[in-house]
Structures are given as structure tokens and as C-alpha cells.
Amino acid sequence: MPTVCIKWQKQVFPGIEIDTSQPPMVFKTQLYTLTGVPPERQKIMVKGGILKDDTDWSTLGLKDGQKLMMIGTADEIVKAPEKGPVFVEDLPEEEQAAALGHSAGLYNLGNTCYMNSTLQCLHSVPELKSALLSYSDNVRGNGVDQASHSLTVATRNTFGELDQSVRPVAPLHFLQMLRKKYPQFAQQQNNVYMQQDAEECWTQLIYTLSQTLTSEASEPAAAQMKELFGIDLVSRVHCAESGEESSEAESVYSLKCHISHDVNHLHEGLKHGLKTELEKVSPSLGRTAIYTRESRINELPRYLTVQFVRFFWKRESNQKAKILRKVDYPLELDVYDFCSDELKLKLQTPRQVLRDAESAKFGLKVEVKTSSSQNIEGVIN
């Protein structure tokens, strides 16, 4: 990695390393942390020209100690008013976001929107942030490897930056640790890092955190993450040809919305995802046969994750293809129809309380069937 010197206004920043395997945007975010000049305002003079975001470093022939000039104005520090009230709408855009409780944004470091969306999604879970805050910098036992530990620390630090900053954050260290732990996210095409799948990034990060995080009560990490995101499924596996039937139980971290030509709504896609066909050996037939697996939710997490399965493998072209079909979804998702009979029984009473509360809000008469039902709302709260 060549080391250069940057001159900006009257300041000189020597000894700045350029990782030429990364796009110029990454270098600009480095300069942003030093100068406060946002990447979009930076003009970096190289060989009489301006460094562009898609410039190939190999064409510039950079040498150690080479001096580069940067032109651009830094974000101004807003001074507090001397007197009088200050309204949110009168604040700069960054401070408006902070005042309204919005999280800071993340810079795209070159086809890293999949990673940024995953981080912002998980950053919205307060229980996860709390667990990360208590995570130590020292490697823990229980078979936690260094790469998993480093990725967890990077996640904790990135969340901290998002909470403390009103400016966009450049998750450079997190990206490096993610690619170190999971090399598939470092794939390149024509010397450019490839776009990746957000669901794969989310799954890998959830798995890592389930191996490393523990609660204050020394609760196993896997159990803690399962409480937040885990979904218990019970499945009936049936072979129509042989009449064989069995039951299975598993825990997953998301429900799949399978998309096909007849799926127009999320509810339909989830229904497809919970009923699948598989081929396996039938003991009674002595050969492979088609089995149908019908799954139901037996336990729900605090945060339910739903994946829209928009990619499939095209055999004719031997590559991934994206399904662009529009699928509607509600602002509030009711998964009662997808639950097991056991879970439905547990949900009946609180669901009735919610319906009664909704009816009362609109002035409709609510019939109280039992004296004990008056105290149900307090119980479920």
C-alpha cells in the first residue's frame, strides 16, 4: 500500500496509506475522518486531473511519499444561538436527524449497500445493542475464534459510532473484519468488489453473534439470540405414495416469502414458504419418493424477520437471477394462521383483548364475557 501526503488548505497530512485494493471512495472516507470534508465535496488532484470514484489505482502509478492536493470545504460546526427558542426545522439536516432520534447513515464503500442495510436493521434492536455494550475486547472462551471475536467487536464499535455521530459513518473496520471472517464478501469482478446478498450477510452476522455474545446473567449466546430472533417450527412430513408420516422440529432465524407467478401478497408467499416438497429415501418403498413438509410456527421471537426470496438459480445460464415481481405487504403482519394449534391456543386471549381495545377506541360496545377477562390486559402487558 503506497503512503502519500495530503495537502488541504494550510494543513498537511503525511503518512496516509492507500489500500489500492479498495475503491477511491474508501480513501475519501479516510480523508473525511481527518478533515471533515464529505467525500462528495472532495476534489483530489492527481497527475493534473481529479480522482474519480471509479478510477483504477493501477493507472495512476502512485509512489511512496507522493504529495496530493485536496480541495473542498468541511462541514461547519453550528454554533448554539445566544438567546431565544430553537425549532427543529431551523436546525441543519444532520442535527434535525439527531433531534428526532434518527440514526446516522453509513457510507457506501463500493457495493456495500447489502452490508449497510444489515447493520442498520440490527442496530434498531435495543436488546442487541445492550448485549454488545457489555462485550469485552478480550477474546472469550467457549471456542470463540479470533475472527468471530474481531467481527463482534467491530459490530459493537460501529453501533457506538452510529449512536454518537450525526454525520454519516464509514464502517471501514467492520467491512475488513466481515471479509476476513467470511471471504465470500470479498469476491471481485474486473477488480471491483461484487454486490452481495443482504440476507446472506444478515445470516452470517447473526450466526457469529450467537456464538460470541452472552448476557449479564451468563446466558448462552445462542439462547439469547434465539429469544430475540429465533422461530421454532413444527413440521408434518408426509409421503402420499407410501402413507408414511413423521414430525420434525427445528429453529430458524427467518420466515421465507417464496415468490412465484401466483404470489401477489406477503401472506401468500409465506404460505408457500411453509409448505415444501423434498425427495428422500422411503423405508417402506425401498427407493426415493416425494415427501411434503408442512410447517407451523410453534414459538415466536421478539423480532420476526421475513426474507423475500427474490433470487433463484437459472440452469440455462448457470447464474443467479432476480425475481422482480411486485409483492404487497401490510404495515402490521398477523401470522396467526401460520401458527400451530398449541400456539394459537396461547394467542386467543390476548388477541381478543386487542380486538376489544380496538373496538372501544372506535366507540363500539365491548361485551365482557367473564370477570377474569377484565384483568387480562394487565397480564399480557
Rank of each mutant, 00 (worst) to 15 (best):
P81E: 11
P14N: 11
V88Y: 09
I44P: 09
V327W: 12
G143T: 02
T112K: 06
L354H: 08
S165E: 12
G36L: 14
R293G: 03
T370Q: 15
L178C: 02
L324T: 15
A289W: 08
L132M: 06
S165N: 10
V153W: 04
S58R: 14
G72L: 07
K28L: 04
T55P: 00
P85W: 13
E358F: 15
L343N: 00
R140N: 06
T208P: 02
E277N: 07
R293Q: 13
L178H: 03
R351I: 06
L119R: 06
E299N: 07
G101C: 02
E82I: 08
Y291K: 05
N142V: 12
P171C: 10
R140C: 02
K361R: 00
T35M: 05
M225A: 00
N111V: 01
G36M: 14
D54S: 10
V88A: 04
K180V: 00
P23L: 11
K63H: 09
V366F: 09
S124W: 07
Q189E: 14
E245Q: 04
S295K: 05
S235H: 05
L213F: 08
Q188H: 11
P39Y: 13
H267V: 08
G160T: 03
K346P: 00
E219I: 05
S242Y: 12
K361T: 00
H149G: 01
E332V: 03
C339M: 05
S373R: 13
Q176M: 07
L128M: 08
L119W: 10
E40F: 05
L151F: 02
A104P: 03
Y303N: 02
D262E: 05
